[in-house]
Nucleic acid binder design. Structure first.
Length: 439
RNA sequence: GCAUCAGCUAUAU
């Protein structure tokens, strides 16, 4: 069974359902017990590729094979649905579980839903799930509370968040390092740098086990307040405590130098991270492109971007087996980096260049996303070209890209200002049909 | 069952 599961994972990643079928048949022929975990592995593989439909087909396939889903498999399905933005689907699975005495929801089930509702701003719903799990005799744990706490933080309700923090600390004693980290982050976002530092120091002094994430968050707060030299001190001291910088740490510092308009230093740090053996990622590149642009060096930014773009065709040594096989794969510069560039062109009034670059992206195998189009649409609208903006908007939809709330707001603004009231109504109707509420 | 659940960095209104 283990052998087959291992193979099944690979089959799942390759997206070959047929092969999976024959594997399954072979297993049954050989009298090899097929477990739900076998199916779950395949489902998760699909899920990570964003192939929700395929994952669901595997789920159904499992039922057809006469296996009823257990809590684990249902949770996997919920996780896949949630990660890919199908909250409604996840709720349906929950409903099935609620009415299934053999397979009721467990703490993981609720934790996932609490977290997702919190992240999408529905705190009330998140709390309802929390109540419901208690009614079922399931006790919320650190993760449940941290999700709830985080949702308040996200909404900027720092006072309520602090109250909740105190409550869960006093009543349930269910706070850990992650909860403290979340608290620091919330305080930082609320502009309470001093308090954030205070909690951070308390954490350090009380002998609480730290990790690099806590340091990264503290660094980010400092850097966003333009306290670059404070950040530098922390960067040094963390290493003295054996917490070594990751790519995120470097990205934060580099963005700090960019925000402080010290782009040269940012570029030097970019070099030194590579020397430290840490690979820059798409965040690094978009931070640098943005930094160069904001420093008025648009053309340098473009040059940098195109250089990285052509360096992107490289060997991907993600060795999956022990055979040392290297998969040659074409890597593409992340859309987000191009989007930063597009935005810079638009903001500099170089609309033509931006539109040209949109095509360059596609030629380089980098598919524009909803951000790319929104940037261009907004640029056109700002230039008083409402008709062209509309055309670009249509273009986007024809490329199979769903508009989101920001896109709709942008369009409403453009059309409204151009006096195209009828078209505004069309947009509003479109929003409704997608289940989006105007904000 | 070491598998499903919480915290860090970039782009649009």
């Amino acid at each position: 069974t283990k052998t087959y599961s291992t193979i099944a994972r690979l089959v799942g990643e390759a997206g070959d359902l047929k092969l999976m079928h024959s594997l399954l048949q072979q297993m049954q022929k050989e009298g090899c017990p097929v477990t739900p975990y076998f199916f779950a592995d395949i489902m998760m593989a699909y899920g990570h590729l964003g192939k929700v439909k395929e994952a669901y087909l595997v789920f159904k396939e499992m039922k057809n094979a006469g296996l009823s889903p257990n809590q684990f498999v249902n949770n996997c399905l919920i996780s896949i649905l949630i990660k890919n933005g199908y909250l409604e689907g996840a709720k349906k699975v929950l409903n099935m579980m609620r009415s299934d005495d053999e397979c009721p929801p467990d703490r993981v089930t609720y934790n996932m839903l609490i977290d997702k509702c919190g992240k999408s701003g529905n705190i009330v719903k998140a709390q309802q799930y929390c109540v419901e799990m208690r009614q079922r005799g399931l006790w919320p744990n650190e993760k449940s509370y941290c999700s709830l706490f985080g949702s308040l933080n996200k909404k900027g309700k720092i006072e309520k968040a602090c109250q909740l923090f105190d409550a869960i600390k006093r009543k349930h004693k269910l706070v850990n390092r992650v909860t403290y980290t979340e608290l620091i982050k919330g305080l930082g976002r609320a502009g309470e740098t001093e308090k954030a530092l205070e909690v951070f120091k308390k954490m350090e002094d009380s002998g609480c086990v730290m990790d690099v994430v806590v340091y990264n968050i503290m660094l980010d707060i400092l850097v966003k307040r333009h306290l670059v030299s404070e950040a530098w001190k922390l960067f040094v001291s963390m290493q003295g405590k054996q917490f070594f910088p990751t790519v995120v740490t470097y990205n934060i510092l580099i963005s700090g130098f960019c925000m402080a308009k010290r782009v040269d230093e940012a570029l030097r740090w970019y070099e030194s991270m590579k020397q430290d053996g840490i690979n820059p990622d798409c965040h690094t590149h978009s931070i640098l492109v943005g930094g160069l642009c904001k420093g008025g060096q648009i053309d340098a930014a473009y040059k940098f971007l195109m250089e990285k773009q052509s360096a992107c065709i490289l060997k991907d040594n993600a060795s999956r087996g022990n055979e040392g096989e290297c998969v040659e794969r074409e890597m593409v510069m992340s859309v987000a980096v191009h989007n930063v560039m597009l935005n810079a062109f638009v903001k500099a009034g170089r609309l033509e260049t931006a539109c040209t670059h949109l095509k360059v992206m596609e030629e380089n195998g980098c598919t524009p996303d909803v951000f790319s189009y929104s940037i261009i649409v907004h640029g056109l609208g700002n230039a008083g070209k409402a008709k062209e903006a509309s055309a670009m908007y249509k273009n986007m939809k024809e490329s199979g890209i769903q508009p989101n709330l920001v896109t709709f707001n942008t369009m409403i603004d453009i059309l409204g200002k151009a006096g195209m009231i009828f078209e505004v109504h069309e947009i509003v109707e479109e929003m409704k049909s997608l289940g989006l509420k105007p904000d």
